[in-house]
């Protein structure tokens, strides 16, 4: 290829693929703003006026309001609980020497390579015994537990980087371990906590497998399984279907908009292993 021809072809190819990447997502958004009859009459078209009924229908009739509320409660609860127990454990693991420290670090971190899905049958019976099948609390506990390995890994690395004199000074002033942790350490690791909270939020918001297995009752479903029921019930109402897809995607787009830094920090924390 001569340099001149390449200078034209390469940008053309790149912008061409950019269209391929974006058009389906545009079609999804545009389709959600058109009445279904319009979509059937003219599959490739633009909305001619602001039409939001698809959204109101998906929100109320298709119980998206319930799914979204459940997802928000379960996922928020899980990331907070997961971060809370992990930050407690990460403090001594990252900064203190005590018998068994190496073992506990290995025990927690090994969870990062284990695919939890393979334990789903025993997990199901365990939760059944605890009366936590078909329960939002049960799903939340499973998610929080699954987030522990990554959280401990990132947070203990963060604790390790803090200057050593800090706890020393607190101890000289007579502060006990819990007071030192709460008043000196916790405020300093806040950025790292934000990183693990945001980073865990995305996969849990999207998770489909655990709620598929663990939840039954329509009123308890989180968005992903709710979406599969919704697609069955509204299969002929395309406008509403598109609106449901947009509503599932939007919270993550907003999250990425406001927290790109935390997400990138989480990604690189995982890579520099």
């Amino acid at each position: 290829m001569t340099p001149r021809r390449g200078a034209v072809m390469v940008p053309l190819m790149l912008w061409g693929y950019a269209l391929v990447a974006m058009i389906p997502l545009f079609v999804m958004v545009l389709g959600s703003l058109r009445p279904t009859q319009d979509l059937f009459n003219d599959p490739i078209g633009l909305p001619n006026k602001l039409y939001l009924s698809n959204y109101t229908r998906a929100w109320t009739e298709a119980s998206f309001s319930t799914y979204v509320l459940n997802s928000v409660v379960v996922v928020t609860g899980a990331v907070i609980l997961g971060a809370a127990v992990s930050v407690l454990a990460a403090y001594p693991l990252g900064r203190r020497k005590f018998t068994g420290r190496g073992f506990f670090i290995g025990y927690f971190i090994s969870g990062m390579t284990l695919p939890g899905h393979f334990g789903v049958l025993p997990l199901f019976y365990l939760l059944d015994g605890l009366n936590l099948v078909d329960s939002r609390l049960g799903l939340m506990l499973v998610y929080a537990a699954g987030s522990v390995p990554f959280n401990v890994f990132v947070l203990s690395a963060f604790f390790r980087q803090l200057p050593g004199e800090l706890d020393e000074a607190a101890a000289l002033d007579g502060a006990g371990p819990f007071a030192t942790f709460r008043h000196i350490m916790l405020p300093l690791v806040r950025p790292a906590i934000a990183t693990v909270v945001v980073f865990q939020f995305v996969p849990l918001w999207n998770d489909f497998f655990y709620p598929l297995v663990l939840l039954r009752d329509e009123s308890k479903l989180t968005i992903p399984v709710g979406l599969t029921h919704f697609f069955g019930r509204f299969q002929n109402d395309w406008g509403t279907l598109f609106a449901g897809l947009v509503m599932t995607t939007l919270p993550l787009v907003i999250l990425f908009g406001i927290a790109t830094r935390q997400i990138v920090a989480g990604l690189t924390a995982g890579m520099n292993r």
Binding site: L81, G82, A84, V85, S86, L88, A89, Y91, P92, L93, R96, F98, F104, Y107, F108, G111, L114, G116, F118, G119, V120, L121, P122, L123, L126, L141, V142, A144, A145, G146, V148, P149, V152, G176, P177, F178, F181
Partner: peptide
Amino acid sequence: GTWYLFLVPALLLYSLFVVYPLLTG
């Protein structure tokens, strides 16, 4: 012993809902 107390909540949650099911499987 204090340091083990810090570990207890995470150990309980992780052992019960991640490690135990995988081993029992």
